[in-house]
Amino acid sequence: MTLTMTMSIVHRITGGALYFGVLLMTWWLLAAASGPADYASFQAAAGSWIGKLVILLATWALLHHLLGGVRHLIWDLGYGFGPAEREWLTRATLIGSIGLTVILLVVYLALGRG
């Protein structure tokens, strides 16, 4: 399987995962709207190691789906179909999403707010 084929299905998988990942945002907003006690419960769950892991994976999925979407928009406009270009675009999606996730992780650790 070529990288473009793999990234095609990964785009769909990240989209499907984010479909349910949106529930994390829903929980976050509803907890904030409900009051200090509910928000503390949310923060305890999000701050646990499993919570942090899920948020890290969701962040990567979101960034990967975003960059993959931009790649598809470039293709929709009729550009980037050459053998070298399409490989380059696909590689950039993967490297970009991992790179940006690492940058956000470093910013998070540097802020040191839990």
């Binding site: 904030a32 200090p36 928000y39 910013v107 998070y108 802020l111 707010r113 839990g114």
Partner: peptide, 11 residues
């Protein structure tokens, strides 16, 4: 990212 770790009132 801005809201990580902030208390309820600030959020």
């Amino acid at each position: 990212m801005t809201l990580i770790g902030r208390n309820h009132a600030a959020t």
